[in-house]
Nucleic acid binder design. Structure first.
Length: 1141
RNA sequence: AGCCAUAUAGCUCAGCAGGUUAGAGCAUCUCUCUGAUACGGAGAAGGUCUCUGGUUCGAAUCCAGAUAUGGCUACCA
């Protein structure tokens, strides 16, 4: 059709539509424009959490990126300039493991010569660099297809030199503030393999095995001081010991504290040592007394003669409880060192409190050795208790067990012994004289009256997956960020962040911050950001904060005599690379440069890499190569206004961003954060490629298009709830929302084109438009406000649902349905549109256009298609300004009226249904009982709508004055509650039993004394229940009655309407155009039918656009012709011809 | 084991500053409407609002505990 203003569509392929829109965007640089058009406007800063491109994207990435995209688009519409720099996370273990898998090697092969099947670090890292960007094409493809607007042309990449240089600068800031230090942490360690194990390695199947170990309940002798005085009240005849159980007796020489639970009940028990038979008083948890003491020996009193009667080797040992107290009273009590081989430098051997203590087993007192337990290390450090350490040959502090798993010389009795018997060879263990170290320790303690019980105990213990030998928890060197030093500030800053959902911020993240430990930065790997610290053997250190600094240190070193020839050559080689710009800050290159310290010692780089999470947490700075470049850009883009990632990032990216910003800039890194839930399969199981329940995002996008996919994900569940992804749900969204909206648009386009309507703004003043128009425009303004509020509150789900409800329930199923006639008539004699018709077009156009804007953040392709279809010449919905709600158009009363109309219509439909009266059969009237003039006026407003909607000829009202209404009175509990409280039941009963007279009194005087209760009108709900003699239906406070009498005239009209319906169907079947005129000849074979047709001939002719409608006695042989048809219509048989003119 | 979240119809979700008949959509079954609409409308059926206690005149809603599911964290001596 030439000159068509509004493109019409037969059927829509949403995926194709999106692809076309995408092409349009790319050709016209719409994304770029959406940013550049806002130049000079306030900025809204978004940080992209960098994905790792070493795997293929999944459907959950579509979810996460949709959230990000929505708010960036929304803020753009609101006039902000929203830059979105993409990024790639390129370092880290997952990439290394993938490379190892592909090369068929393990960590041990790296750095070994090729002749031994090894691979150089150089080659290995090259492989990592290639691997990590392998899937970028797929990622870019997904980004495009799903409509995620992010700048992929200039992404930040964490392995780039510039990025690493910024990280080094940050680390140096930390270092200079004394927030970066070398310490140790307790890690799983395999002495036989000589290596630490990652938690991933510890979680491999089969690592935990049940073993039978020698366990000891050791006696720690309490020093009588002020704090412990209450334990000695009894007498001086017995020493007081605290009992602690251990499954690793070899750690006892390293004991430096005992940990108890603050709120656990403990008792002091009088008894005898079972090995030395000496009288003792011991402390243990009350709940565990029965675990260690035989009930037969129980004495009620410490003065029991049983104690005096006790003889060594007696089977039953008498015991009695002396006193009971909470764990907190034990705090600070000092005890004698159990095995005094090594003295700590600071004071130790105190009772401390720990949150991990239970009374599940043991004695409720935990033997604490900071060098061999992570919990131990943590609580001891917090309490200022030193570990038991010795100095090695270099004067370095080391634990009392060396890296081979043997006691050091200082542990004289056991020097050189392996702490675990499994570390001995099978031959050694076969010797009948062989005793495991744990047993030897047990014997020694028994002899010294330091063991309360020695027994075998079976429990699970982790083993090294490579050597099959038990692992040790062992202190290993690590570099730390002293996050604990800034903990309070980090907690404070967190309170200024808007978390969505709130619980993640206050609960998960807040708790995490409260229990913060120092950030272990070290990773003993190869592919990552190297730690920029050089150290000499004597502990002289320098932290490098830039490439320039690195260069200058290397240059300075070249002048020194200390370096070997080879070191100097390597330095030279690197200096040349630095000079040419063709350098690499990764291993192994930075490992091969050497500095010289002030005192003339060679300095080498600390071999560690840093935690990759530092990489991503550094992105606010490093993405701009701050502070070496872009200082101004950074200043404008920090902190972020908005970030969003999965809830699993709480302790990952969210934390690292927060920690770095807080520690170095005393600032938050982001103001608003949406943490999203997981995407599960439709049964609520985790998606995994292994289980085959993973959804391929590309397939989904190809089948349903990105808009329905995004819409489904956003509106089905709130983003932070887990989404049970059911692909059928996308189909539903597509049919219900996009289908309805497209049909609505097509309807508009069809008639607008016929009438040559072109939207040129509001030419008909809103005030002059009919109720229906003013109503939908009022609803539309309310919708704009609602959507804006929800987007502002980072609630995309509620925003989407509001749009959906508007489109389905208000716009399509009410406004358009009731307005149809206005579109297909309404031409004045001179061929121009009536104002009413014009108003209808303008109203519908405005609704559709605004809906396109409101939905555009969520469904960007479709919304743009819709918007541009409606507004020829406009570049894109994404370049528009967010609609501003005109509050003067909001008419609450009208909205209520329309609600009443909808309610009344629904009830009438229901009554018709009950009496098998189809809507085509006109009825004379509905009767609506109203109790207030307000209600009456409200419904009167919309009476014409009701009449046409339910096909009745009149809406009548019965008010109270008629006296025929039957009322029902119900208690209004909400109002009564505060007044009568406990008497509620009585009041409610009295109200229900109220007489008509009493009710009248209440209504007229607004007061009623009912028994002892003084009631007001507002204390009750009055509803009409019935109109005697009528058929009624009610819903809530609304009641309608329907006159179901069908007179002959009404019957005739009904037949006429049925007839019209049949002709319309016929026209449709025969593919007549909407504008075609016809001639009808109908056989006169039934008088009722004939009369009905004749009486309503004008009406019928107009409806079906017949220029003639004749009743003939027979069809003159044309009954079998191509124009003839026979149709059954209820009890009538229609024989007729229909001819196009 | 600890922390966080969730638990409402067959399915997906609303409702949750406590108010006595717990809603919607999808799916099922009747029926119906349609000159934009593979849409809509009416009806039917479908619920001990996970369980147990508590607070209250009144609890799906608030509190405590339990159970289940999911996530994160973790060395149970």
């Amino acid at each position: 059709m030439p000159g068509v203003k509004y493109q019409q569509y037969e059927s829509l392929d949403y995926a194709k539509l999106a692809a076309e829109v995408l092409t349009y965007w790319n050709q016209n640089q719409v994304f770029e424009q959406s940013v550049s058009l806002r130049e000079g406007r306030p900025t809204f800063t978004f940080y992209e959490g960098p994905p790792s491109a070493n795997g293929t994207p999944g459907i959950h990435h579509v979810m996460a990126r949709t959230i990000k995209d929505i708010f960036c688009r929304y803020k753009t519409l609101q006039g902000y300039q929203v830059e979105r720099k993409g990024g790639w996370d390129t370092h880290g273990l997952p990439i290394e493991l993938q490379v190892e898998k592909e090369l068929g090697i393990t960590k041990d092969h790296i750095g070994k010569p090729e002749s031994e099947g090894g691979i150089s670090v150089e080659d290995y890292n090259r492989k990592c660099r290639e691997t990590v960007m392998r899937f970028t094409d797929q990622w870019n493809d997904l980004t495009q297809k799903m409509g995620y607007w992010v700048d992929l042309d200039n992404p930040y990449i964490t392995y780039k030199n510039e990025y690493i240089e910024s990280i080094w600068w940050l680390l140096k800031q930390l270092y200079d503030k004394d927030l970066l230090y070398k310490g140790y942490t307790i890690q799983p360690y395999s002495p036989k393999a000589g290596t630490g194990l990652s938690s991933h390695e510890l979680n491999m199947p089969g690592t935990y095995k049940d073993v039978r170990d020698t366990t000891i309940v050791a006696q720690f002798k309490v020093k009588p001081t002020g704090k412990s005085g209450f334990l000695f009240f009894d007498s001086a005849d017995a020493d007081v010991y605290i009992l602690a159980w251990t499954t690793t007796p070899w750690t006892l020489p390293a004991n430096s504290a005992l940990t108890v639970g603050k709120d656990i009940d403990y008792v002091l028990v009088k008894t005898f040592n079972p090995y030395t038979f000496l009288p003792i008083n011991v402390v243990l948890a009350k709940a565990l007394v029965s675990r260690w003491f035989n009930e037969k020996g129980h004495q009620d009193s410490p003065n029991s003669p049983a104690f005096d009667a006790y003889l060594p080797n007696d089977k039953v040992i008498p015991w009695a409880i002396l006193s009971e107290f909470k764990g907190e009273h034990l705090e600070g009590i000092e005890y004698e060192q159990l095995l005094p081989y090594v003295q700590p430098e600071k004071s130790a051997f105190r009772v401390i409190l720990g949150d991990f203590v239970t009374t599940e087993d043991g004695t409720g007192v935990v033997h604490t050795s900071p060098t061999f337990g992570a919990d131990d290390f943590r609580v001891a450090q917090a309490a200022g208790i030193p570990p038991i350490m010795v100095k090695d040959e270099n004067g370095k502090e080391v634990p009392i067990v060396d890296k081979h798993g043997q006691f050091v010389n200082e542990i004289t009795d056991f020097a050189g012994r392996y702490v675990k018997e499994e570390y001995y060879s099978d031959e050694e263990r076969a010797d009948p004289e062989f005793r495991p170290t744990d047993v030897l320790i047990a014997i020694k303690l028994k002899e010294e009256n330091k063991a309360f019980r020695v027994e075998k105990y079976e429990h699970p213990y982790p083993h090294c997956w490579r050597t099959d030998k038990p692992i040790l928890y062992y202190p290993l060197d690590s570099w730390f960020i002293r996050t604990t030093a800034k903990k309070d500030r980090l907690v404070e800053l967190n309170k200024t962040i808007n978390w969505q959902p709130e619980s993640t911020g206050t609960g998960r993240f807040g708790n995490w911050l409260e229990n913060l430990v120092d950030w272990n930065l070290s990773r003993s790997r190869f592919w990552g950001t190297p730690l920029p610290i050089w150290r000499s053997e004597t502990g002289e250190e320098v932290c490098i904060g830039s490439v320039e600094e690195l260069t200058s240190y290397v240059q300075k070193a070249q002048g020194s005599e200390v370096l070997t020839e080879q070191q100097r050559t390597q330095n030279d080689a690197y200096l040349q690379k630095l000079a040419s710009g063709d350098y690499d800050l990764h291993r192994p290159y930075v490992d091969e440069v050497y500095f010289v310290s002030e005192s003339g010692k060679v300095m080498q780089r600390e071999p560690d890499l840093i935690d990759v999470w530092f990489d991503s947490g550094a992105m606010p700075y490093a993405q701009w190569h701050y502070p070496f470049e872009n200082k101004d850009v950074f200043a404008k883009a920090f902190p972020a206004d908005f970030i969003s990632e999965g809830v699993d990032q709480t302790r990952g990216w969210f934390f690292t961003l927060h920690a770095i910003a807080g520690m170095l800039f005393d600032s938050i890194a982001f103001k608003n954060v949406v943490s999203t839930g997981l995407v599960l399969d439709k049964n609520g199981n985790k998606m995994s490629k292994r289980l085959g329940n993973a959804i391929d995002p590309f397939k989904t996008l190809a089948q349903y298009g990105p808009d329905a996919t995004r819409w489904y994900m956003i509106t089905n569940a709130e983003p932070w709830d887990n989404l049970k992804f059911n692909i059928d749900g996308i189909g539903e969204v597509q049919r219900k929302l996009f289908g309805t909206l497209s049909n609505t648009y097509n309807f508009f386009a069809l008639y607008a084109n016929l009438d040559h309507f072109t939207f040129t703004g509001r030419t008909v003043p809103v005030a002059d438009r009919p109720e229906l128009d003013r109503w939908i425009l009022s609803k539309l303004q309310s919708l704009v406000l609602e959507v804006e509020e929800q987007f502002d509150g980072y609630n995309p789900t509620k925003a989407g649902r509001a749009v959906q409800d508007f489109v389905n329930d208000q716009l399509s199923n009410w406004y358009v349905r009731l307005s149809r006639r206005r579109f297909w008539s309404g031409v004045t004699s001179d061929g121009n549109m009536t104002a009413d018709k014009r108003a209808a077009y303008e109203t519908l156009h405005e609704c559709l256009s605004v809906v396109a804007q409101l939905m555009s953040p969520i469904a960007p392709f479709y919304a743009d298609w819709l918007y541009r279809s409606l507004n020829e010449g406009k570049a894109s919905v994404h370049l528009t300004d967010f609609p501003i709600a005109d509050k003067t158009l909001i008419n609450t009363e009208l909205e209520q009226s329309m609600e009443a109309a909808q309610g009344v219509s629904s009830l009438v439909h229901s009554l018709r249904k009950g009496h098998k009266l189809k809507v085509r059969q006109p009825l004379s009237r509905v009767l609506i009982p109203v109790l207030s003039a307000d209600t009456r006026r409200q419904i009167e407003h919309v009476a014409p709508i009701i009449m046409s909607e339910v096909n009745v000829k009149a809406v009548e009202f019965v008010d109270d004055a008629s006296g025929i209404l039957k009322k029902r009175v119900k208690p209004n509990f909400k109002a009564l509650g505060p007044k009568f409280g406990k008497q509620m039941k009585e009041v409610a009963a009295a109200i229900t039993a109220m007489t008509d007279d009493e009710l009248k009194t209440l209504e007229q005087t607004n007061a009623l004394q009912l028994g002892t209760f003084n009631l007001q009108l507002s204390d009750v709900d009055i509803q009409t229940e019935d109109i005697p003699g009528w058929l009624v239906a009610s819903e809530g406070s609304l009641t309608v009655a329907l006159d179901v009498t069908v007179t002959d005239a009404l019957r005739g009209e009904g037949i006429a309407r049925d007839f019209v319906n049949r002709i319309q169907n016929l026209r449709k079947d025969r593919d007549f155009s909407v504008t075609d005129k016809i001639r009808i000849e109908l056989e006169r074979n039934n008088e009722v039918l004939a009369q009905a047709i004749e009486t309503n001939r004008d009406y019928i002719s107009q409806e079906v656009q017949a220029i003639s409608l004749d009743l003939v006695s027979d069809l003159n042989g044309r009954a079998s012709g191509p124009l003839a048809t026979e149709i059954e219509m209820d009890e009538f048989l229609l024989r007729l011809t229909v001819e196009r003119v």
